[in-house]
């Protein structure tokens, strides 16, 4: 999977490394901004009220 991505990135090794870092940062950003905030309330840390549910 990662080898496939590496082979399909354009440019020489330096450009590919730079693009890889940008890709990793983009993935982390999406995870922290969208995926984790969605997943976190599914865990029990949010249940702090008495509501009978």
């Amino acid at each position: 999977m990662y080898g496939w991505i590496w082979r399909h990135l354009p440019g020489n090794a330096w450009v590919r490394a730079l693009l890889s870092i940008v890709l990793v940062l983009a993935v982390v950003y999406v995870l922290f901004q969208y995926v984790f905030p969605w997943a976190e309330p599914l865990l029990p840390f949010n249940d702090v009220t008495v509501d009978g549910q």
Partner: peptide
């Protein structure tokens, strides 16, 4: 084998990132 190990690595990294998110980033 390679795909499987890459998958394990990815899941492991995801879990670590999620723990960082829950413990620190929130």
């Amino acid at each position: 084998v390679r795909t499987f190990s890459e998958l394990c690595l990815t899941v492991g990294t995801l879990i670590v990132l999620f723990v960082v998110y829950v413990l620190y980033w929130t």
